[in-house]
């Protein structure tokens, strides 16, 4: 039996789920499909059960917040040589150095929250990535996959905890990684890295108290820079020249 390539898999997926998957592409030898929430469970059940796919296991599921995708904090202006470099982008927001409220959306990602699933087929020895965007940014809701693969249980709890994605039909959607009584979803891009509250022991109240963060200030040591690096293709060739057999 010959090994299925990711390209062949993408081709089969396109043929089988025509219209229900937005796109099936291959990058870095990995196939990715995008499914609308309405079709997610149906497509996934087929992916698990049908002989040509047979993805027995959900290896991984995680939430992603696409807010601010492709945005740098440091701009190199066109006139870099004559006028020096641009400064860090100053945010309008008070909390932290960079504001997120007025950020334009990246044209590729119109929705903010997505759930990304990694599947593996042990029989065909191939992996597949399934991405599903939540239709609403304010209250992201997606169908649960626990009915298809039980291992989705904790992963969905994690994505709910860290990103606030609500998985409809999940049997036990509680927080999992954050503290008891935690407020907010810490992995969202607009949640500050230093957090919102800090904890200390209050000797007068004789208990642990939560207070707004004062002991640390947000600090960016290395600014986020987006560079279209045309040097990669050239350097890749240089590298292969030196070590041919790799």
């Amino acid at each position: 039996m010959s090994q299925t390539t990711p390209e062949q898999l993408a081709e089969r997926l396109r043929a089988r789920f025509d219209g229900r998957i937005a796109n099936a592409d291959v990058s870095h030898a990995q196939a990715t499909i995008e499914v609308a929430p309405a079709h997610l469970v149906e497509v996934c059940t087929a992916l698990r059960d049908e002989a040509e796919f047979r993805f027995e296991q959900l290896t991984d599921l995680c939430g992603v917040d696409f807010l601010g995708f492709g945005e740098g904090e440091w701009a190199t202006s066109e006139t870099a040589t004559s006028q020096g470099f641009g400064r860090g982008v100053q945010g309008d927001n008070v909390q932290g150095r960079f504001g997120w409220d007025n950020r334009p959306r990246h044209p590729q990602f119109l929705r903010r929250f997505a759930s990304v699933v990694h599947l593996i087929s042990y029989i065909h020895n191939i992996r597949l990535r399934v991405r599903c965007f939540a239709p609403e940014d304010a209250l992201p809701v997606l169908p649960t996959l626990t009915g298809v693969w039980p291992s989705a249980n904790w992963y969905e709890r994690e994505a709910f905890d860290l990103y606030g994605i609500v998985y409809e039909g999940h049997p036990d959607l509680r927080r999992i990684l954050t503290d008891y009584g935690f407020v907010g979803h810490p992995f969202r891009k607009d949640f500050p890295l230093i957090g919102n509250v800090e904890v200390r022991y209050d000797p007068e109240a004789k208990r642990v108290v939560y207070e707004p963060v004062t002991s640390v200030t947000p600090r960016v040591t290395v600014a986020r820079v987006v560079r279209e690096d045309s040097r990669w293709p050239t350097s890749r060739e240089e590298a292969t020249d030196d070590w041919k057999d790799n």
């Binding site: 290896t59 995680c62 990304v116 291992s151 290395v222 820079v225 560079r227």
Partner: peptide, 28 residues
């Protein structure tokens, strides 16, 4: 299986890193 799912948007910092830890799935 220890996996690393990484999304880059062309910056010098990863846009998203997710670490697939075997122990998490096992304990669940």
């Amino acid at each position: 299986e220890f996996g690393c799912y990484m999304i880059s948007d062309g910056a010098n910092k990863p846009f998203r890193v997710h670490l697939r830890a075997p122990g998490f799935a096992h304990l669940s």
